[in-house]
Amino acid sequence: MPIAVGVIETLGFPAVLAAADAMVKAAEVTIVYYGICESGRMMVVSRGQVAEVNRAVEAGIAAGEAAYGGKVITHYIVPNPPENIETVLPIHFTSKSEPFRIF
């Protein structure tokens, strides 16, 4: 079963926090990364089954936009990323995220 990647990029911390919270509450996904992109932009990355990631990203976008001063800049979903992408991008399961892995 393919493990998808869902990314939401927001402006500011409150929006990314709201998006991450909504993502894990709306679907069975694991947050594998969050951090600063550039100039106040933050991103949160989740992994899970394709349908779950789609549901999580939809909920995260709505929550990020609803947060006070929140703005979702961009988002994307990669349904089945190649394994070599994990060596370049921070989308792999780490020792910190592994205990929360659902699938």
Rank of each mutant, 00 (worst) to 15 (best):
E86A: 15
V53K: 01
A15K: 03
G12K: 09
I3M: 14
I91A: 08
V29G: 06
R41I: 10
K71I: 13
P81I: 00
V5G: 02
F93T: 15
K25D: 14
I73K: 02
V50W: 00
A66T: 03
T30G: 03
N54V: 06
V29H: 11
P90L: 07
G70C: 06
E86L: 15
I73W: 02
E28Y: 06
R55Q: 13
E9Q: 12
E65F: 00
D21Q: 07
M23H: 10
V72N: 09
M23S: 12
E9L: 09
A66S: 13
P81M: 01
E86Q: 09
I91P: 01
V50H: 03
F100I: 08
V29A: 05
A22C: 06
P99T: 07
V44P: 12
V7K: 09
A56D: 04
F93Q: 04
I91H: 02
G69E: 05
V32P: 07
G12P: 07
T74H: 11
M43Q: 12
A67M: 08
F103K: 11
V44E: 10
R101N: 04
D21P: 00
E9F: 08
M23W: 04
V88I: 15
P79L: 02
I36D: 14
V5S: 02
V16Y: 01
F13A: 13
S97L: 10
S97E: 08
M42D: 00
V5T: 14
G69S: 02
C37Q: 09
E58G: 12
L89M: 14
T10P: 06
V45T: 14
E65S: 07
I31G: 03
T94P: 07
V45P: 00
A56V: 07
K96C: 08
E98W: 08
V16C: 07
A26S: 14
I73S: 03
V32Y: 11
F100C: 03
G69P: 03
A22I: 04
I77A: 03
Y34E: 12
P14Q: 09
Q49S: 10
Q49R: 15
R47L: 08
G40N: 07
K96N: 12
V53F: 01
P82A: 11
A20D: 08
N80H: 12
V72Q: 07
G48H: 04
A63E: 10
C37A: 13
V45S: 00
E28G: 02
G35Q: 12
S46Y: 01
P82K: 15
R47C: 02
G69R: 00
G69F: 01
